[in-house]
């Protein structure tokens, strides 16, 4: 009976001249998605297109759809001007280096911490995890000045040729832009939640075979945690790439500055918006490329960990 009813439904739909409610919902869903896509894509499109136009034309096109189209007097002049105003290549290299090292160390340190909390028998680990998560509610701005004081007291071993010398104070260095951001409560939480979803029987079997904790971490848990690694990588990369306040406070030498400080170079009394758009395009491209490369893992991990962003 059920089969008969099911098979009858499509015939009814084919005969009907009006679209079914399900189809209408499908079309509606696509329209909403397209509209959302447009809303999110148009600012980027405007940025890229405007980076090719002279200032006068950018403002002239604002009142029409031409603002989003590569029409009119197009050139790469704004990109050339960017390099005259800002050491953009140096800033890009700095940001890539700082972000990459922060991501690599962040994945390593936070996954190790999460592994210990998830797998090892540590008394009070629930409390420890709660305390770690509780640090998320403290805004960075309230910690910034005390942190400046702290990093100015820390020792460092400087390599001068073949001799090591002990110095004090990390200000105006690369390490001050990396090390304070390696340990991250949210990354530990994310890894912890993901590790909890990996069957413990796997590492118990490995323990029976004589594997050490580190071997279990390295050979079993981490290879199964690709989506979590991708998500933590992106979530660590983005703030490292967008970092502005911290480098502003702790870096004085131009050769050590990251890309975001460079944005401020353009806001003089007479702003050249074409140059602003060109520089913004240059520093946005790596982020977009990274997201496109990792988007599947990113979405998977966000979905599986229940994190809504």
């Amino acid at each position: 009976m059920a089969t008969t009813l099911e098979s009858a439904r499509p015939r009814t739909r084919v005969r009907s001249s009006s679209p079914s409610p399900r189809r209408v919902r499908g079309i509606g869903g696509w329209i909403v998605r397209i509209l959302l896509g447009v809303v999110f894509a148009f600012p980027l499109l405007f940025m890229f297109v405007s980076s090719l136009k002279p200032d006068q034309q950018i403002f002239g096109d604002l009142s029409s759809i031409a603002a989003f189209l590569p029409v009119g007097n197009l050139s790469l002049d704004n990109y050339g001007a960017v390099f005259d105003r800002v050491p953009a290549a140096r800033f890009l290299v700095n940001s890539i280096g700082i972000s990459a090292v922060t991501v690599v160390l962040g994945v390593l340190i936070n996954s190790l911490a999460a592994f210990a909390l998830s797998r090892m028998k540590v008394r009070g680990k629930g409390v420890i995890l709660t305390l770690i998560i509780a640090t998320l509610i403290v805004p960075f701005e309230t910690l910034a000045l005390p942190l400046v004081w702290w990093v100015n007291q820390l020792p460092w071993l400087d390599l001068n040729g073949f001799s090591l010398s002990l110095t004090t104070g990390w200000l105006d260095t690369y390490q001050v832009q990396i090390l304070p951001f390696v340990a991250n409560a949210f990354s530990i939480y994310l890894f912890h939640q993901y590790f909890e979803s990996i069957p413990k029987e796997l590492d118990e079997a490995a323990r029976v075979d004589g594997a050490s904790w580190f071997k279990i971490y390295r050979k079993i848990v981490m290879p199964l945690s690709g989506p979590a690694i991708a998500t933590v990588s992106i979530l660590t990369f983005l703030p490292a790439w967008n970092s502005y306040l911290w480098p502003l406070m702790v870096v004085q030498s131009e050769e050590l500055r990251p890309v975001m400080i460079g944005v401020q170079y353009f806001f003089q009394l007479n702003v050249s918006w074409g140059e602003v758009m060109a520089y913004s395009s240059m520093i946005t491209l790596p982020v977009v490329a990274l997201f496109i490369a990792f988007q599947r893992s990113f979405v998977n991990s966000i979905a599986s960990s229940g994190v809504k962003g």
Partner: peptide, 23 residues
């Protein structure tokens, strides 16, 4: 010479002063 962007210059000076690192 060390140059800073104008909009953030005061913040840089205040941070450096807090660390006794003013030029």
């Amino acid at each position: 010479v060390q140059a800073f962007p104008q909009d953030s210059y005061n913040d840089s000076v205040v941070a450096a002063a807090s660390a006794n690192k003013l030029p």
